[in-house]
Amino acid sequence: MSSDGSDYDEGRKKSRKVSSTALIPTPASAKNDKPFSMQPLLETLDDVVEYDDFPLEELIDYVMPELVNERAALLAKQSQTDAHGQALRPLTRSEVASMLAAAEAGPGGSGEWVVSQAIAIRKLKVTKDRRRVGYPESSSTNKFRVAASSSTEAMEMPASALTSEHTQTVINALGAIRATPYENSFLARLGGVPTGVDPPGLVSVDWETVTPWMELMSDVREHFSLSHPEREPPFYALSPILYTALHPWHLNQVHDLLERAFWTGIDVRDSLDYSPERCTIIATYGKLVVGVAIMSSPRETYITYLTVRAGWDNARIATTMLYHLIALNPHQDITLHVSANNSAMLLYNRFGFKAEGFVAGFYETYLDPLSRASKNAFRLRLRQH
Rank of each mutant, 00 (worst) to 15 (best):
V220M: 15
K287R: 12
I303L: 08
H84G: 12
M321W: 00
T26I: 12
E95A: 02
V49N: 05
G201N: 01
A179P: 00
L75F: 11
K77C: 00
S3H: 13
L216T: 13
L306E: 03
S2W: 05
L322W: 07
Q168V: 10
W312A: 00
E43K: 15
D256G: 14
A344M: 08
S110W: 13
P330D: 00
G175V: 12
L322M: 06
K77Q: 10
E58K: 08
F362T: 01
V220R: 11
L347E: 05
G361T: 03
E300W: 02
L56D: 09
V63E: 07
V18W: 07
I119Q: 10
N314D: 08
I121V: 05
H84N: 14
S218E: 10
R278P: 00
E66S: 15
V193Q: 09
R71C: 04
G191I: 07
L322N: 02
D53E: 11
P35F: 13
K17C: 02
R260I: 09
R93Y: 06
S94Y: 06
R299L: 15
E43D: 15
T335G: 05
K375G: 11
L124W: 03
D333M: 07
L45A: 10
V289W: 03
G291N: 07
R379V: 04
T211H: 05
S150N: 14
D333P: 06
R379H: 09
S19N: 11
K77V: 00
T264R: 15
A101H: 02
Y285R: 11
I317K: 04
S371A: 13
I24L: 15
A105H: 11
H337P: 01
A373G: 11
H337G: 03
L257Y: 10
V359K: 12
A377G: 07
R221I: 01
P27Q: 08
Y305D: 04
S37D: 10
Q168C: 03
F224A: 13
E300L: 08
K125G: 09
R132Y: 13
D9S: 12
E58T: 10
W213S: 10
